[in-house]
Computed example of a mutant assay.
Amino acid sequence: MGIVGHSMFDQYKDLIFSLSDNDEETLKSETFLLERDEKKQIEIYYAPFEYINEKAKVVLVGITPGWYQMRQSFSAVMSSDPQWADEKILNEVKKRASFSGPLRKNLITMLDELQLQNHLGVTSTGELFGEANHLVHLVSILSYPVFYKGKNFNGATPNILKTEILKKYVLQNFTKEITSLNHPLIIPLGVNVLRVLSVLAESGDVDQRQILKGFPHPSGGNGHRHRLFAENKEAMKQQIEQYFRTYGG
């Protein structure tokens, strides 16, 4: 079983269950605003992405939940049973909303091409979002939805580690979360996530051997995705094999 980390869910749970709509006006409002930096034009909102699977063998790391994922996370809570334990509700949120939409389909295709499923004893990595969910932890380096100039933050501008409001969430939330896990294989989705993880590796928070290098962001908007994946595919397969030899799966 996983745990719920640095959870603010208690504070927001009743409010989310009482919502009649989960449109943009409702969710991106002062009610769910955690922080705003007007000068940097950054806004950070609450969304219930707080479930931690401590026993995960693989961690998929994104930049931040986007608007689509944010809305899906609220929908997952609103359609669950209020009598369920928080842990169960928040696990459902992760399964349903993390990397949801076309992104998830691209991600599964790429992971299957790397034959990760063979190391995990499943038929396809698509099972990580279903019955094999106990094998994976789904997380973002910025665990709550971040919007820059009103749009989904892509991790490039402004620089995460040079922007105090963002760096704080990496150090306070993500670093604690990743170090609570038992040496999983860490798959950063794209160069901006890899950059942050490399800094954490330099400071000794994670082992370089845990980090898969060369995995492009699976977004359909990433025009270089296919080329980068093809170029790095064999090297990534070797890294995955080396990881499972080192840590025994």
Rank of each mutant, 00 (worst) to 15 (best):
E113K: 13
F49I: 04
H183A: 10
D112H: 04
H224S: 15
R209Y: 14
I187T: 02
F49C: 00
K94W: 00
V199M: 10
I3M: 08
L181M: 13
E113Q: 14
R96I: 14
Q69F: 07
S7V: 02
L15T: 15
L135M: 10
S198N: 13
E202I: 12
V122N: 03
E241R: 11
G66Y: 05
Q210P: 00
T64A: 02
F215K: 01
H134M: 06
G220R: 11
T64I: 03
S7Q: 03
R195C: 01
R104L: 01
L200V: 06
E38S: 14
I42L: 15
L181S: 02
I211P: 06
T109G: 01
H119V: 05
L212N: 03
S29N: 08
E87M: 08
L27S: 07
N182F: 04
F49K: 00
V136L: 08
Q41G: 03
R71G: 10
Y68Q: 15
D37Q: 04
D81H: 10
K57R: 15
N182H: 10
I108M: 01
V136C: 05
Q242W: 05
V196R: 00
F99Q: 05
M70R: 12
F99P: 01
A47W: 04
N222R: 03
K40N: 12
M110L: 14
